[in-house]
Design a binder for these strands. Sequence first.
DNA 1: AATCCTAACTTAACAATGTTAAGTAACGGA
DNA 2: TCCGTTACTTAACATTGTTAAGTTAGGATT
Lengths: 206, 206
Amino acid sequence: MGPKERREREREEIRTRILDAARELFANEGVESVTMRRIADRIEYSPTAIYFHFRDKEALLAELCDCDFRSFAHGFAAIAQIPDPVERLRAAGEAYVSFGLNNPSHYRLMFMTPKTTEANTIAKGNPEEDAYAFLKIIVVDLMEQGRFRDDITDSDLAAQVIWSAMHGMVSLEIAKCKDEWVEWRPVADRARATSEMIINGLLKEK
Amino acid sequence: MGPKERREREREEIRTRILDAARELFANEGVESVTMRRIADRIEYSPTAIYFHFRDKEALLAELCDCDFRSFAHGFAAIAQIPDPVERLRAAGEAYVSFGLNNPSHYRLMFMTPKTTEANTIAKGNPEEDAYAFLKIIVVDLMEQGRFRDDITDSDLAAQVIWSAMHGMVSLEIAKCKDEWVEWRPVADRARATSEMIINGLLKEK
DNA sequence: AATCCTAACTTAACAATGTTAAGTAACGGA
DNA sequence: TCCGTTACTTAACATTGTTAAGTTAGGATT
């Protein structure tokens, strides 16, 4: 079955070329520059050709988002080696913030935009692809070591609260950094203070 | 100067009619339903008439946003009466979350959408119009009573960290509540846990 | 080998959007 | 009475996502 496989391969190739073009536009010029026509220009196809490979623009963006989630999770690989879960949590927080500030377009698409599609291809629960799973391992490690305050027993709840707090910092920075209404403290200071608040607020003293 | 004033008044009236129509569309059908043509339909004017009263769509939305910020801040009036700043903080957090969950469209526009315009008409620093100022008063009260941990001395930094954490909760709920990737705990539980984390994380024990 | 069919496109078009250009009607001041 | 400004309207433009209707090339079928 030679020709059939070649066709399949070629189809996959143009698919990734579309995704790459979209990703590049997206990262360089922001989400509003990602139009079907501009993607098409870049790969020297007509705009309609894209529809043969993706149901619609949203499906294309969803697939981009999936890739981003995976590479985002990969970014935590080195941190997974840190033995002390408190230090690991601190490092993960720092990495999370760095990602958001360095990739605001991606962060917005990933975490600040309501999704209408539900299907994704992330290996749920695998910490190498699923950053939430990575965080949960930290939380469970902390819990097993008895580091949490006694009233905190739900590891999912704890993980979600931790994530939310860091997300709040990053997303507010992305959405409101231009706003002069508030005298913003440097984002690095806010990040550190948030980390310490999380640790002091959830863990036992000392 | 009779006619001139009447003109002025009529002008103001149609202006608010435009804003009201936009607000209604916005609250009922989401931000993507707010088009110049639909607003125009509602007030039985042509779409171009709106441009005589607002520079462009963004200016219109910015003005809506201003109104929302003001009424948002007004929502804290009753809470201002609570004498104990810790209880006031708790109540403010609850009110903040309620507002976000009950008005997700407004919340998105106010806090989750990067602004390109800078001018607004909020009385900065007045806690009746400026919710950040309201929060800051709580923080300053706490600080004057010596309730904060010793390493926390910057009231703006503290206010921003508190706000971020609550915002993270609300915004994640709005953007990702449909996402089945995470086994979300009930948002009310997350809200309470976040509040407690803030209080335990920033204040002295007991 | 001739035919057909389907996969992979292209061109043209549609409807919806924000926005602008050009025209018009009314009304107050000179 | 005339003029000009104010407050609009109609028509149009450019840009978007998306679809309809071809077209072409190459493997499969008879």
